[in-house]
């Protein structure tokens, strides 16, 4: 679904992405782990279109999206969540999702009929909310949600774009044990319909979710394999799992 082909990126003399290649097959969850400063965020920016690569390509569902802007990549099927939760705080939970549904359902250059009254948008949004378990929160302002609920709302917003791939940027960040467990269950359930690229610090989550793990160190992928292979890989251990994980 997603293929990254020998991506390179320099900031001046600093090489932040060195010949990165990876791919996510349908039904698969591919995790990228690595210490701080390894270039994970730069990689995410290049996939989502915030930054342009110096060389290499990003393919989404076989289509080269390397030169598309952020919103065009979303329209092409890239759904993402943010490391720091990002929702529309003054909108209701339902309207957050309905606004994302709207982007994929007909033109938004409509100026006179009420958007909140569009039953098809609301029904689709409601269905997605019940899928992530937020339907009882639908009418609350998004700003009222707890941190864990915001994480779920972000996933709902990403799902509303019927993505070909979910790019999850540290979805577990700041979550407690029980909230993490809820989210891991949800992602496990979604995995069959939505291939995922998971960038995560939380090793429990990575080992429970990922089919394949890539270890990114100093802008370079130093190890790749199943979670158990990576756990045993000496290079990965040295770079990342260092302190006896």
């Amino acid at each position: 679904m997603l293929a990254i082909e020998s991506l390179n990126k320099n900031f001046g003399a600093l090489q932040v992405s060195k010949d990165i290649s990876l791919s996510v097959a349908p039904g698969q969850c591919h995790a990228v782990i690595g210490p701080n400063g390894a270039g994970k965020t730069t990689l995410i920016h290049q996939i989502s279109g915030v930054l342009r690569q110096d060389s290499g390509r990003v393919l989404l569902g076989g289509r080269d999206v390397s030169h598309l802007s952020v919103w065009e990549r979303v329209q092409a099927g890239l759904g993402r969540t943010f490391q720091i939760t990002s929702v529309l705080p003054t909108f209701s939970v339902l309207e957050n999702v309905a606004t994302a549904v709207q982007a994929k359902t007909g033109s938004s250059m409509r100026f006179f009929t009420s958007a909140a009254g569009e039953a098809t948008l609301n029904e689709q949004a409601q269905a997605i909310l019940s899928r992530v378990g937020l339907s009882d929160r639908a009418d609350r302002p998004a700003a009222d949600l707890s941190h864990g609920e915001l994480r779920l709302l972000e996933i709902a917003i990403a799902l509303a774009g019927s993505p070909k791939l979910l790019l999850l940027d540290e979805p577990m960040a700041g979550l407690g044990k029980t909230e993490s467990a809820v989210l891991i269950d949800l992602l496990n359930e979604l995995r069959s319909s939505f291939p995922m690229l998971l960038v995560e610090h939380d090793m429990d989550a990575v080992f429970q979710l990922a089919d394949e793990v890539s270890v990114l160190v100093d802008g370079k992928i130093v190890a790749r394999g199943t979670p158990s292979e990576v756990r045993e890989n000496p290079q990965a251990r040295a770079a990342y799992l260092g302190e006896g994980a």
Binding site: W71, V87, L88, P89, F91, A103, K104, I157, G161
Partner: peptide, 15 residues
Amino acid sequence: RAARDNPQRAEVMGY
């Protein structure tokens, strides 16, 4: 209004 609330989010909804 979405772009007012959170421009980055609105863009990553595909607008």
